[in-house]
């Protein structure tokens, strides 16, 4: 185990209305086995001991599945390692003497609430507008009554793996939420259970996505590159298709 010394430049902003700025902190003896969030924990303990306010950041499961954590590290959402969330990024990806710039996920639809913590409720509202199969509890047919080709189930699972972290939005040059929205639409479009409502779902989820102020997709592929779950833009293609078909035939 080795340790490194770092200079951190972290976005500090007291609340949504305040102006923020990058503050510089020196942090020594960072073990390379630490996760990025554990490094921030150490910084916060140090700041607390110095009587300063710790850096606010969202985190919960710390095993890469809840989607709560995330920040832009040196310009890359969730940092330099591929297919990991910030909590699974380890300090061995950095070298002694590095300066690391840490900024919150930014998008018009993600207001910064404090420091690195942003409001991603817009993503919830996209799901609320139609990201489900409209069935009530009970009275459902037997699980095996509709056979689903294993390959479709796998593709649906690929899309369903989305953790809703918002890295796709943060990394998109235009702040678009297409990868997020398309993941849910794909999952349900690929399964027979989702077929009945697929047109209405595509129309309302896209309408909600636009209303929230997310940008336009320009097929820059950044979202796919930073997605911690490796969700493919093939899903975006599927969303485009679903939407086109729905818009031309619904009603």
């Amino acid at each position: 185990m080795s340790s490194i010394n770092l200079t951190l430049k972290i976005w500090r902003q007291h609340n949504s209305d305040a102006l923020g700025n990058l503050e510089t902190y020196d942090l020594d003896d960072v073990h390379t086995d630490m996760s990025f969030l554990e490094m921030l924990d150490i910084l916060n303990e140090k700041l607390t001991k110095e009587g300063k306010e710790p850096v606010a950041f969202d985190h919960d499961c710390r095993e890469g599945i809840c989607g709560m954590c995330g920040a832009v590290i040196d310009g890359i959402a969730h940092g330099p390692e591929k297919e990991v969330t910030l909590c699974q990024l380890h300090m061995r990806n950095f070298s002694n003497g590095d300066t690391i710039v840490i900024e919150p996920f930014r998008s018009r639809a993600f207001p910064v609430k404090k420091d690195l913590l942003v409001d991603r409720s817009a993503l919830d509202r996209i799901i609320q507008s139609g990201g489900y199969v409209s069935i009530n509890t009970g009275g459902t047919p037997d699980g095996n009554s509709l056979p689903i080709p294993s390959s479709n189930a796998e593709l649906a699972m690929d899309a369903a793996a989305c953790i809703g972290c918002g890295a796709c939005v943060a990394s998109c040059p235009n702040g678009a939420a297409m990868l997020f929205t398309s993941a849910k639409i794909s999952q349900l479009a690929l399964l027979p259970q989702g077929h009945a409502e697929k047109k209405q779902r595509a129309l309302s989820m896209v309408a909600q996505m636009d209303e929230e102020g997310f940008g336009n997709c320009t097929n820059a592929k950044e979202c796919e590159a930073v997605c911690p779950k490796g969700i493919s833009i093939r899903n975006i293609a599927r969303l485009n298709r679903e939407y086109l078909f729905a818009a031309l035939t619904e009603g």
């Binding site: 199969v133 459902t140 699980g143 294993s150 189930a153 699972m157 369903a160 349900l188 259970q193």
Partner: peptide
């Protein structure tokens, strides 16, 4: 219930 909701169980 979960299958009907579109949970992509392994097949």
């Amino acid at each position: 219930q979960c299958v009907a909701q579109g949970v992509p169980f392994a097949r």
